[in-house]
Write a protein that binds this DNA or RNA. Structure first.
Lengths: 214, 214
DNA sequence: CCCATAGTAGACCGATCTGTATACTCACTC
DNA sequence: GAGTGAGTATACAGATCGGTCTACTATGGG
C-alpha cells in the first residue's frame, strides 16, 4: 500500500468540509456504493483480507472510478471507519436525548450499544477489530480509531459527572471498561447477552458508587 | 491460503502428543526459530500483513524448512496462538499458586495479566487481535481463540464459586467483562494503567457482591 | 557403512495485490 | 455546442502472495 500519501484528488480542493480529521471525500453515487461495499466487506472479512478489485466488483463500479474518488485503499479504510463512527454517534445521540435522568443516560449508552450490536455487529466493534489490523500509529485511520475511544471515554466521564462529580474520572473509566468488555465478549461470543450483562454491572456499580460518598 | 487441509506431515504420525486440539508440530531447532519469528511478527504487524517469506528470512531458515515443519501458513498461525495460550496459562498458574484466599486468587489473575501485558503485550491480547483477522469459524485457529476465552471464563467462575457459590456464574461473567475490558483498554491505550483499574473495580465488586447475599 | 532426518540454496508457479493508463460514453451546464 | 465531471471497459505494470520443486550437505544412530 502506498505510504499514506494519497487522498482523493478532490479532497484538497474542498474548502468547507465538516470539521476535523483527514476525511470526507465527496460522495458521488459511485463513491457511495464503494463505501457501502467496502464497509460490509471490511467488517465481515477483515481489512487486509479484502482487495480493491473485490470492492469495485461488489460496488458495481470500475477500479478507475474507485481510485478517482478515493485515491488509495488506505483512504477507503479511513472513510469506512469515519463513516461508522459518524453513524454510531448519531445513533447514540438519538438514544441519549430520549432520557433525562443522569443514571438513565448512562445506562442508555449500553442500551444503544446492545441495539447497535444486534443490528449490525455480529463480529464485534469495528474500531477494536480495525485496531488489531492496523499496527502503525502513523496510519491515517489510527486517529479515527483512537479518536472514537477517547470520545467514548469523555462521554462516560461527562455523564458520570452529573451523578458523582468528584469521582467522575474514575467512574467514567470503570464504565468504559465494562462497556468495552461487553463489546468484546459479545463479538467473540464468550457468553450470551454480554452487553446486557455489562449494563447490569454498570447499574450495580452506579448504585454503590453514588451511595457511598456523594 | 489452502483451505485448512494441511498440517505438518509429521503431525499425523505422532501417537502420543499432549492432549487436545489440532496442534503440536515437533519443534526442531529450525521450527522453533520459525515459531519465535512468526509469533513476534504476527503480533506486531498482524497475521495477514506478514508473509511466509518474511517469517523464513527472520527465522534464518529456508522456506522449504518452514513448509517441511508446518505444512502451511495456517498451521503456523495455529501453533502461534496455541503457543501463546500455553505460555499464558503456565504464567498464570505460577501467579495463582502463590496465593490461597479466594479473593486474592481472583485478584491474582488481574495481577498476572498486568505483568504479562507490560512484559509482552503492547498491542493488547493476541487472541482478541487474531479474532479480528480470522473471520471464518471453520479456521483451525478459531477453536484455539474461543477455547482460551472459554477457559478464562470457566476459571473466573470457578474462583468465584469459592467465594459466593450461588452467584458464581454471574460473578464469573462480571469478572470476565472487567478483565477483557482492561485488556482492550490497555491494548488501545485508551487510558493509562487500564488493567490495574480493572483490578480495582474487581476488588470493589467482590466486596459488595459477597457482602450482599452469602 | 548406510540411511533417515534436518537443514541450505534457490529457482519457479500461478494467483492476487495495489495502482495506472488509454479510450470512450453520457449528462448537465455555461 | 463546447466543456466538464462521473462513469464504463479493459489492459497492464510491478510486486508480493502462498506453496512447490530439485539438488545438495551435514549429522548422528543402527
Amino acid at each position: 500500500m502506498s505510504e499514506y500519501v494519497k487522498q482523493a484528488p478532490e479532497a484538497s480542493k474542498a474548502p468547507e468540509a465538516g470539521g476535523e480529521g483527514p476525511r470526507r471525500v465527496p460522495l458521488t453515487p459511485g463513491a457511495r456504493r464503494v463505501l457501502e461495499a467496502a464497509g460490509r466487506l471490511f467488517y465481515e472479512r477483515g481489512i487486509h483480507a479484502v482487495g480493491v478489485d473485490l470492492i469495485a466488483a461488489e460496488a458495481g463500479v470500475t477500479k478507475k472510478t474507485l481510485y478517482d474518488r478515493f485515491g488509495s485503499k488506505d483512504q477507503i479504510v479511513v472513510e469506512y471507519l469515519a463513516d461508522r463512527d459518524e453513524r454510531w454517534r448519531a445513533f447514540l445521540a438519538e438514544h441519549l436525548e430520549r432520557v433525562r435522568a443522569p443514571r438513565s443516560r448512562i445506562l442508555a449508552v449500553f442500551d444503544a450499544s446492545r441495539d447497535w450490536a444486534e443490528r449490525s455487529l455480529p463480529r464485534g466493534c469495528s474500531m477494536i477489530n480495525a485496531h488489531a489490523e492496523i499496527s502503525d500509529p502513523a496510519h491515517p485511520a489510527y486517529a479515527v480509531i483512537t479518536g472514537q475511544k477517547a470520545w467514548m471515554l469523555a462521554l462516560f466521564t461527562d455523564l458520570a459527572r452529573a451523578l458523582a462529580p468528584r469521582r467522575a474520572k474514575s467512574l467514567g473509566r470503570s464504565l468504559m471498561l465494562l462497556h468495552e468488555g461487553g463489546l468484546v465478549a459479545y463479538g467473540m461470543g464468550i457468553f450470551p447477552d454480554a452487553i446486557d450483562h455489562a449494563r447490569q454491572d454498570a447499574q450495580a456499580l452506579l448504585k454503590t458508587a453514588v451511595r457511598s460518598t456523594e
